[in-house]
């Protein structure tokens, strides 16, 4: 697959997912936290029923960059860890797989909170 086509697909899929969320926001007045939770759970579900990987093969970052990808990693981690470690994997799998993302979000937020302050809003 040529790289231009890859990027086009990434753009279209990523954009479509976001516009779907935007429709939900406008129609149901959902808050951003609810949107994040909903799309994360969609990711968990897609991974759990095993269709996330084929979509990922096709859509690449178009599906892994949205929070759906985060949800899918949680589920994938749990599934793989259960196969390897049994019951312990139920608990360790999800967080282990997403540890990088959570730690980065927390660490950088902490760092930048020490450096910067909230800015006044104009619009």
């Amino acid at each position: 697959m040529s790289s231009v086509l890859t990027y086009l697909i990434v753009f279209l899929i990523g954009g479509l997912i976001c516009s779907l969320a935007q429709i939900l926001i406008i129609r149901t007045r959902m808050t951003s936290a609810r949107i994040l939770v909903l799309f994360e759970l969609i990711g968990v579900f897609l991974q759990a029923i095993g269709i996330f990987e084929p979509i990922k093969e096709f859509a690449k970052s178009g599906i892994t960059v949205p929070i759906i990808g985060f949800g899918a990693s949680l589920a994938k981690g749990a599934i793989e860890a259960v196969a390897k470690d049994g019951i312990l994997g139920i608990f360790t799998g999800g967080i282990t797989a997403t540890a990088g993302g959570i730690a980065a979000a927390v660490g950088f937020a902490y760092l930048f909170a020490l450096i910067f302050s909230s800015h006044s809003k104009k619009t």
Partner: peptide, 20 residues
């Protein structure tokens, strides 16, 4: 709107903004 909420960057923003 959702264009910057749904990507993982929106998650990062929602952690960093209350921290600030």
């Amino acid at each position: 709107g959702a264009g910057s909420i749904v990507p993982i960057s929106g998650f990062s923003n929602s952690v960093a903004s209350p921290a600030l």
